[in-house]
Amino acid sequence: MGSDLIRLSALLDDAKCFDLIRQHRWPDGVRCASCDSGQVVRNGWDDARHTRQRWLCKDCKARFDDLTGTVLAGHHQPLRVWVLCLYFMGLNLSNRQIAQELDLNEGDVQAMTGQLRQGLVERQPDVRLDGEVEADEVYVVAGHKGNPAAVQKKAGRDAGGG
C-alpha cells in the first residue's frame, strides 16, 4: 500500500455516524429501548465512545444508548467501520474486498457481514401478499431451463402409458 492511499474510514467520524443512526432509528424522536416510551432524557455520553449518547427513560427508568438493542451493539470496532462495511455490502463487494478497504482481516469482516445480514433480516417486516397472482406458460417453461420441446416430449411419453 502506498503512502498516498486515502481510506474512506478516515473521512468519516463517529459523531456523524451516531447522528445517522439516531435519525434512522428514531425518525419521530427517541424511544425507550425497553418499554418504547417517548418520555426519555439525555443521560450523558458513553465513556469509551464519547459520541454515543446515553438515555434515561422517565417511565421505566431504563438506561440505554444509541446502539442498545441493535445489531451494532457490543462490538469493539468503531461505528464508522460498521457503517462503511454496510455501505460496501450495498455495493456488492466481497468480504475480501471489504477487508482490504477497511484494513481488517477477512475473518473479522466475515463475522461483521454475517451479523449485519442477520440483523437486517430479523428487522424486516413480515411479507403479506394479497390480490391476484398471474402466471403464464413462460414461467412453466422457464422452470425447465427454457427447453419447451423436452417438456412436451416428456408430457407425451407420460400420456402414452410409459
Rank of each mutant, 00 (worst) to 15 (best):
F18V: 14
R52E: 14
E134M: 14
A155Q: 06
D130N: 13
R63D: 03
L11M: 14
P125N: 15
W55K: 04
D59M: 05
T68A: 04
D13F: 10
L79A: 08
A33R: 08
M1S: 07
A33M: 06
G38K: 05
G29I: 15
V141I: 15
D47L: 00
R157I: 06
D65F: 00
N43T: 01
R80V: 05
V133P: 06
V41D: 07
A135L: 15
V41C: 09
G131R: 09
K58G: 12
D46S: 04
Q100I: 14
G90C: 02
E137W: 15
R31S: 13
L72S: 01
D130G: 13
A149D: 12
V71T: 06
G69S: 03
S9A: 10
A33Q: 07
P27I: 05
L84Q: 10
D103E: 15
L56I: 02
S94A: 05
L79R: 05
Y87N: 04
K58W: 06
H50S: 08
L12W: 11
K154P: 01
Q53S: 10
V71R: 01
R96P: 08
Q115S: 01
R31T: 11
E132Q: 13
G119W: 02
I6D: 07
H75T: 03
Y139R: 06
V109H: 03
D14G: 09
R54L: 09
P148W: 06
L12E: 11
M112Q: 01
K58A: 13
W45L: 09
L116C: 00
G74S: 04
W55R: 08
D14P: 05
H144M: 12
S34I: 01
N95S: 06
R42M: 10
T113L: 00
G160A: 13
A111F: 02
R63L: 03
H24M: 04
A149Q: 13
H50W: 01
Q97I: 07
R7W: 08
V138A: 14
L129T: 11
D36S: 04
L8N: 08
G44Q: 02
H75Q: 07
Q23R: 14
K153M: 07
C60S: 04
V151R: 09
V41Y: 07
S34R: 09
E101K: 11
I21D: 02
G114T: 00
H144S: 10
G107V: 14
R117V: 00
C35Y: 03
Q124S: 10
F88P: 00
V138L: 13
G74D: 06
R42V: 12
G107M: 15
D59F: 04
G146M: 11
L84C: 10
D126E: 15
A62E: 11
D47F: 00
V71Q: 01
R117E: 02
E122V: 12
Q110T: 13
A48L: 03
H144N: 14
H50I: 04
Q118E: 09
Q53Y: 05
R7F: 10
G44Y: 02
W55L: 06
F88R: 04
Y87L: 11
L5N: 05
E132N: 13
E132G: 12
P148C: 08
A99P: 12
G162E: 10
I6V: 14
C57Y: 04
W82I: 01
L72N: 02
L11P: 12
V140R: 13
R63K: 05
G74Q: 08
S37L: 00
F18P: 09
C17N: 13
G146T: 11
E132L: 14
D136M: 14
R157Q: 08
G90W: 01
